[in-house]
Nucleic acid binder design. Structure first.
Lengths: 92, 92
DNA sequence: TAGATAGTTAGACAAACATCTAAATATCGA
DNA sequence: TCGATATTTAGATGTTTGTCTAACTATCTA
């Protein structure tokens, strides 16, 4: 059920996090440098993304490195794909 | 700015409306038959979708017919596409 | 024009959400 | 083990969201 994924995508900060992660893995601190919100707020957004399965985290010493989970991203894209090429489903 | 679109997609009822509209245009009343919420609530969801540009409405006599706006849908898909085939952006 | 039907707008309310500060946990280095 | 650094958890607060009922607007038909 992709519901959590869509809810996670509703917030612009979280979409921006995903865009940053697309360029490469980041620690929570590195991500925080890109935003004007407190670290606890960012941590909360990361928890939301993790809960939705969109990112994974892994501790490396003092840092926690976040990575994109493209598999779940693909699932969401799959939903959208149902809205493209609908002509093919009908009579054309 | 696709922000409104993503927010509109965050609600399961609204996603279901889009899925129904994908099969063909519907009046507000026809859509209402598929949900257990009041008509004002549904109307509010339709207004949200319309505000996001995801649907258009047109009055036909007593009825108001809602249609999918696939163009805006494509814009959202475009955002997702940035997350696929990222290998191609790098070294492969 | 009066009544019925289709749909929206207005206003209220509880639940969910984004944010903050303060405190806690985890790891590293001396 | 002690202090510094990185990050999360706890608790509070203001805003947004989804829902409702009641009332309103628009259109059709007799």
């Amino acid at each position: 059920m992709p519901g959590e994924g869509f809810k996670a995508l509703a917030d612009p900060t979280r979409r921006h996090i995903l865009e940053l992660l697309r360029e490469g893995n980041c620690t929570a601190g590195e991500l925080a440098e890109h935003f004007d919100i407190s670290k606890p707020s960012l941590s909360h957004h990361l928890a939301t993304l993790k809960n939705a399965g969109l990112v994974t985290d892994e501790r490396h010493g003092q840092n926690i490195v976040y990575s994109l989970n493209t598999t779940v991203m693909q699932d969401l894209i799959g939903w959208f794909m149902g809205f493209t090429n609908t002509e093919g489903d009908k009579d054309e």
